[in-house]
Nucleic acid binder design. Sequence first.
RNA 1: GGGGGAGUGUCCCGAGUGGCAAAGGGGGCGGACUGUAAAUCCGCUGGCUUGCGCCUUCGCAGGUUCGAGUCCUGCCUCCCCCA
Length: 416
Amino acid sequence: MSAFRSPFMKEFAARGHLHQCTAEAELDALMAKERIAGYIGFDCTAPSLHIGNLTQIMRLRVLQRAGHKPIVVVGGGTTKVGDPSGKDETRQLLNDAAIEANKERHKEIYRRFLKFGDGPTDAIMVDNAEWLDTLQYIPFLRDVGRHFTINRMITMDSVKLRLDREQPLTFLEFNYMIMQSYDFVELYRRYGCRLQMGGSDQWGNIVSGIDLARRTDSAELFGLTSPLITTSSGAKMGKTAAGAVWLSADMLSPYDYWQYWRNVEDADVGRFLRVFTDLPLDEIARLEALKGADVNEAKKVLANEATALCHGRAAADQAAETSRKTFEGDGMSSNLPTIEVPQAEFAAGISVLAAFTRAGLTSSNGDARRQIAGGGLRINDEAVSDEKLTLGQTQLHDGVIKLSLGKKKHVLLKPV
RNA sequence: GGGGGAGUGUCCCGAGUGGCAAAGGGGGCGGACUGUAAAUCCGCUGGCUUGCGCCUUCGCAGGUUCGAGUCCUGCCUCCCCCA
């Protein structure tokens, strides 16, 4: 296992990214000898990417750091088909305009994590719509479709899952595997790309592409999958009360992003440091060895580093400072998430119920009432006991009112 | 084409066969305990008002009934068996 020669494979494995690999020894030898291009595909199903996608991006970072060339494939074409892998039912299809809009937002995110350009190890970004959109049905079936047998396809996990569960799998989705296989071949032809990486649920699709390339181009391509990252309590990671942990600041503030990492379970710190930061492995080993309350130090490092990668060092420092003041200090930080209320409306008086709901801390007035009954709401750090309370001038401190749900969620209400 | 079964609180699973805002889990949120952790214990988990009030929910649309998730009819979707 540890006998890898190439810097890439060594680090990839050491950081816990390695799950399955085709022709492991050959790939290792190839990467030790020469620079190769490797890709990961991302579909454009959401307006932002989340930390599940980030695990993949971090793998491309490892690739780039080891002196190879990362290719980000944005799935402008494949998103129109919809990947059935790992999903037990059909996803809602997006229209072209939504896909296009998502794609543009994603591009901005990739640029934060990878260095793009024309240099030998600079990353490049390509859209598979470039070749998929213009495919001709009959020629494609004859050139590519002939290499796929139904017998084989229905044994693939992504297909079998649906069939076993007796859930419908449309012909459209059934074709996703073929699209992705074709992508790999096309990338090999265009960029000499030899490696495809992906999550463990992509194994079947990746292997299909390798087979296709061998048949059509007599090319030897390689595949590498990574384990699905879960929290130690078994949950798919990246879900919070508010939804996914997004990488776009307009969908999840840098402060909340920082807080997500700060609050991971003890058992996850080491693993997450290896995957989501670039810290040297011996430094991570030191942090991972911390016991008891000292683990909090490791969590802060994780939060700082992960946030700096995503939102920049300045934003990370500010989030850390805001957190310090909020949780460890006495003063109130003005950098907490803030909602603004028109002065006139504020002057007329806002009920506690409305204020918390407006701030997004509670989902309805009824919810706010229940939280008050349970002692969960605080204004300027004092528990709310009266649900009829009206907020006004008297609660203002430095021009804001601090609303809190539980110990961790704080929002400032600011009249403007 | 024929026969049988299923669709429940828009997070999920899942009881329910005329009185239900609807059992029970899981998840989530809050409280206690802690270290902004885990485990444990407690509370909450349709909306609007909280005065015992009103409204909206059990695939869709009608019907029977004082009253239906629960009965009847039609439709949609899925599954199984037969052809």
